[in-house]
Nucleic acid binder design. Structure first.
Lengths: 222, 222, 222, 222
DNA sequence: AATGAATGAGCTTTCATTCAT
DNA sequence: AATGAATGAAAGCTCATTCAT
């Protein structure tokens, strides 16, 4: 939230970032349509017209938020994959957990909900998000699963579709936080949720053929 | 859509149902906010004021759609559960498949997306949906899993949280169809998706035949 | 409120009167614009279209209410005047009290408020009411005052304008009942109000016994 | 009406006042409901959305009109009372005349009609007006009468109710101007009306100098 | 570069009146 | 004579975007 500096002293180059930060917070809370430009401006500590100096319109602000905040998280996952040498199980868990930490526990977790909600009414946004985020994400998880299958850690599976099944609980966890989750009597215990997800997925993916290697059932980090 | 008839008569008793059908189609396509009352009216073959003869406002139309269409599907699942005598695996597959058939392949599959998207801006709707749909659905799947665990078909699991993990891929499948799914080059093969989901879940839930590593079976917090 | 008779048995000739009664009650409560035709119908125990069998539109219903209910009250006052033989004071009191009883304490007391409120937006209604009610009422009170002056009971006064001053507290009393009166902590004691009105008016009109100050008796513009 | 200026600037600080002035004129003419926001805007020389920058909604515009225009008139009367040293008669006449001048002869005279008309349908407005205007007005006139009674200028009277009787002709005079008054062949001569009011009221309130004729003071029927 | 007043199309909801039955 | 479903124009309020300063 924009460190307050004495009036004109505030460095101009911080403006766009402050606007994007404010926009992300509001997008996550209310969605795209329900977020008013004026609220973004106010929250960024500027006036109505200022965001238009830096971004052509609300859609461009959304794209910029995605580019600046979400896409680096995917790059981070790709980085991790390229340097990984352990078991498929460990890799999958590592990727899911770091995604959860970098996205699920930040305001970014509001973006999947937003895009799901508004894709139909903003086809440009949908296309952009699909190409820049979804496709890269799917490719990343696909490579993770293939890695495990090729190492013999995972059963041979229908990779393309398994990717979606693997991602679903993580995405849903994020969506939940930002929508009906607020109706629940006791908030979700995210660590417990994540643990359940990983346990079920790994257990479902793991090669059951040979007498199980007890180590491979253990939860890494445990 | 409504055979055109001269004058207003004849369709009298059919009107509310026609309006709900039109509303569901539009809700699924555009969401709650973006669905204009006038569009509902037009699609139902009536004029602006007519829906208000039957429903107090847009929120009530939504509730009626849920009550008339979605809730019976849950009742159907409860019915199925109470009469089932086979294995846990068979029960879970049966429930998921029939849910998919009765909801996922109809316009009803648009409702989860809608409610996720608009919960924050329509707390009344959220509360209604949470109490009437989510809680009953969660309870149903919880009983299905417990059934399997008690029969020894499934590993002992953290039922409350496993429910969410089991439902996630099904819900996501429905959400996908109505949002970013339209961006995909080739449409999802739903049978293939469902097969992958069930295979992974059953494989993840099923009691391993050989002596398992006890540590990995523990229920968190237990 | 429409004696309930077995369905079709209800004598048709009672319909218009029932509709007017319902209309008066609602007009008094909500005013002209805010009274919905459908509410009139419902309250009269018929359906939406029925009032239109008897009256061309809402304005005509209003006129009929005035003709059937309010105008007879004026005739009654005229009757009283033509047969009266006592003092001017007694006559004025009699007229005011019987007006209060026949109008002020019934739903008719809502009509002055209504017409005052809506005259600007329904010029036809205003003209009708002015000609049929106001002019006759003013003429009546004018003759009452003249009666008192000619008998020497009242000071010689500017009759035309005194009429308005005399009527004002009675009209305001009725208006009050139907509008801001509801905000008062304790409801108006109408008998006490009426007593205060009459006391002040009679005391203000009565011929002082001692040689009067001629200046104060002059009629302006005379 | 707002000298037309190029662009939107310049009138910045004047806007709210211009809007209130336009609103008052329309409220006086048509009442609250029948005054369209767009008409207020047009008359103030702006477009539909502009009034909403300054006032949350139509009700708030009404309240602002009352606060800015009517309430100062009451304060003025209170001021006058606190500095007055003459006879009760002179005080009452002074107060009524200055009220007439400051309210009766301006657009403010439309407010009593408005509030009487719409109290039932806008309870919030009614409560506000009752508390901010009526109660203070009643208290003011009550003190004026008490002043006269205590000085021996007025007969001892039922102050609470006499207040209403005294105010009635003044309020009615204002109401009349804005409703059925327009139907009259020759417009009311306000000076003549006011003179008649004051003469009748003072004559009705003044302590008879001579031994009173008990009969004439008795309340008939008592 | 930044401001913030102003725009105006767009949406939900209401209700007098009509007219097929 | 009576019904009551349907009409459709109208009104309050919102908000992305513009542009004079």
């Amino acid at each position: 939230m924009a460190t307050v500096v004495k009036g004109w002293t505030r460095r101009k180059e911080a403006r766009p970032a402050e606007i994007l930060e404010a926009a992300l917070a509001l997008f996550a809370e209310k969605g795209f349509t329900a977020t008013k430009m004026e609220d973004i401006a106010k929250r960024a500590g500027v006036t109505t017209g200022t965001p238009y100096r830096y971004f052509a319109n609300k859609e461009e602000i959304f794209k910029a938020v995605v580019r600046e905040s979400l896409i680096p998280q995917i790059s981070f996952g790709e980085e991790m994959l390229s340097q990984f040498h352990g078991s498929g199980q460990a890799l999958l868990e590592e990727v899911l957990r770091s995604w959860w930490q970098g996205v699920g526990e930040t305001n970014l977790s509001g973006l999947p909900k937003l895009i799901i909600a508004e894709a139909g009414n903003f086809p440009d946004l949908a296309k952009f998000y699909y190409e820049e985020v979804i496709e890269r994400g799917v490719r990343l998880i696909g490579r993770v699963i293939t890695y495990g299958v090729e190492r013999g850690d995972f059963r041979p599976v229908d990779v393309d579709y398994t990717v979606r099944v693997v991602m679903a609980p993580v995405i849903m966890g994020m969506i939940w936080k930002h929508s009906l989750g607020v109706c629940e009597r006791e908030p979700i215990d995210t660590e417990r949720y994540l643990k359940t997800v990983i346990e079920l997925l790994l257990s479902g993916l793991t090669q059951p053929q040979q007498p199980a290697n007890p180590a491979s059932l253990e939860i890494p980090h445990a």
